[in-house]
Amino acid sequence: MPYHYADGCLQFGINGFSFDGGDAGSPDYDDRTIPLYDYGDWSEVTLEGDVTIGNSVERVFPDDEGPPFPAELIVIVDAEETQLRFEKNVADPPVSEGSYDVELTLDRSLLRGDVVMTPRLVRTEPCRKGLPYAPNDGMRVAGGESWTVVVDHPTKDSDGFPFVYRDFSQDGMPSEDLVHSFSKTPNPKMMINDQNENVVDVLQSGNTYGFRPNMKRLLKADFGVSLWIQLVVLTGTTIAEAGEPEFDWQEGVVEEISESELGTHLFDENADYEAVVSELGDRISDPSKLRELITDLCEAVQLYQGYAEDLDYFIQEHSP
């Protein structure tokens, strides 16, 4: 900053929260988040905490200004998805080193997604001395770590190839099939026929033990085998035509091959990204090598997916 600024001078803590004056919960101190999405239908949440002004605050004001100093202590509330920013006043000027309680009530109808709260110390008068002190009122002179209120279930950005349910009885879908891939675009997907109740039942089961979860592991390996064969062949075709992968997911395929046992099995131990690109393009474009590639691929993918292992386990567990 072009003037004295005390970064980390403000310690912002959240002690707890409660909904509509009732149920209470505790924040996630490790992530500095306040997860609210599993508490059902609340309309207001009240957060309780405090902001402590540390002793480095003395550095950002000239000696003749305090303590107490001509500044206000605030928490900035920023709700990006609902386009809402405002300040919550914690302490009026003048302020000194020490701890100040803060209680903030948020109305759910005004929020969605994440709400970030950041503590700030802001000058309320111009500084006669000027630089190297913040010269104007309204300038921030100290800050601290923020907290995030997580109002809605975070949608995680997944690196995994997406599997989605689709109604296969609709026009243009293979109504008798179970899975159908859709991979010509930059956003490929594996579609699962949601009309098959039993399969849905298995796929919706959790990661615990028992028939359905075990069957799910097996199904995943099974889907994985056919998916990977398609992914590798499609990526190889693109490389054969264009010399390099075209879409992000194709680069992901090449990278995963080079970093996993797929690469070890298909090519050799040390096949790096570039080697995989050239080998794959080469073997796809040459019919004699293609046959061999497909055979190798079937083997490699089964190993990669742990297919035999899952199947064996399943039979052991569930044979009558």
Partner: peptide
């Protein structure tokens, strides 16, 4: 489940959608 819903816990089948990380 409704048409269009994601199938849960399938991320590890083919972890490739992040593109090239290196």
């Amino acid at each position: 489940v409704e048409s269009g819903d994601g199938v849960p816990d399938m991320d590890d089948v083919a972890p490739i959608m992040g593109g090239r990380t290196n």
